[in-house]
């Protein structure tokens, strides 16, 4: 469960990226977050991961208060969350296989389990043949799928995906969305940031629309409602 209570976030420059947002996402929900560029979507994701600290307000993830969580407990908090970063953030010095395996090594998965799980994840995102390529040898869409495989490999309870289909063609986008829906059916809370109107409208899920750092609308079975 994710709870935000009156959360604001200002960067050192410019007006606040997030202004007094309160929000509740239940366990097992599937939520789209939409909104034009600069509306604060990625900032919200970073706050949930505790990559950033809120300027004010409280954030709870899986019952833990992120303001008071002990530094030592942060890795544990992050391990419960799978993240697809908008800029992928793959480790440049390792190939596709090692990038995904790394997420498993972090939680000390036995090597023989890693050897089974990583190829399975690669197959799932359709990158089985590219396992030896380095990130710079991959297209944007391929990197995005590696990032997704890494986010999912540890079976997180929450998946935060910041534009996971931003670089994909329509067919691939749909496949990824179907995959996310599948994962959500398995009980994982899924939060997807996207600009893809077609997908949002067709999937008939909860849609939170942001604008200049505030929530403009929050619809249970929503549609892509803002004009960019």
């Amino acid at each position: 469960m994710i709870v935000l209570e009156d959360v604001s976030k200002s960067y050192s420059t410019g007006s606040p990226a997030i202004k007094n947002i309160s929000l509740k996402i239940e366990e097992g929900e599937f939520v789209f977050i939409v909104g034009n560029s600069g509306s604060g979507k990625s900032t919200l994701i970073k706050l949930l991961l505790k990559e950033l600290e809120p300027t004010s307000g409280k954030i709870f993830v899986n019952g833990k208060d992120l303001n008071t969580i002990k530094r030592k407990k942060i890795p544990e908090h992050r391990r419960g969350i799978g993240v697809v970063f908008q800029d992928f953030r793959l480790l440049k010095d390792r190939n596709v296989y090692d990038n995904i395996a790394f997420a498993q090594r972090v939680i000390e998965t036995p090597v023989k389990d890693i050897k089974k799980r990583v190829p399975a994840m690669l197959a799932l995102v359709g990158l089985a043949e590219k396992y030896r390529s380095f990130p710079k040898e991959l297209s944007g869409g391929e990197q995005q799928r590696v990032a997704l495989a890494r986010a999912l490999v540890n079976k997180p309870t929450i998946l935060l995906a910041d534009e996971p289909t931003g670089n994909l063609d329509p067919k691939n986008s749909w496949e990824i969305m179907k995959l996310l829906e599948e994962i959500n059916k398995g009980g994982t809370t899924v939060v997807v940031v996207t600009h893809n109107r077609e997908i949002v409208d067709a999937m008939n899920k909860r849609v939170i629309t942001m604008h200049k750092g505030v929530i403009l609308s929050d619809e249970k079975k929503g549609e892509y409602s803002y004009e960019s």
Binding site: R78, L91, K92, V106
Partner: peptide, 16 residues
């Protein structure tokens, strides 16, 4: 630096 940052964000401990 960037690599270390990514490792931390996907849940690596300081020791790791």
């Amino acid at each position: 630096k960037e690599e270390i940052r990514i490792m931390k964000l996907i849940g690596a401990t300081d020791i790791f």
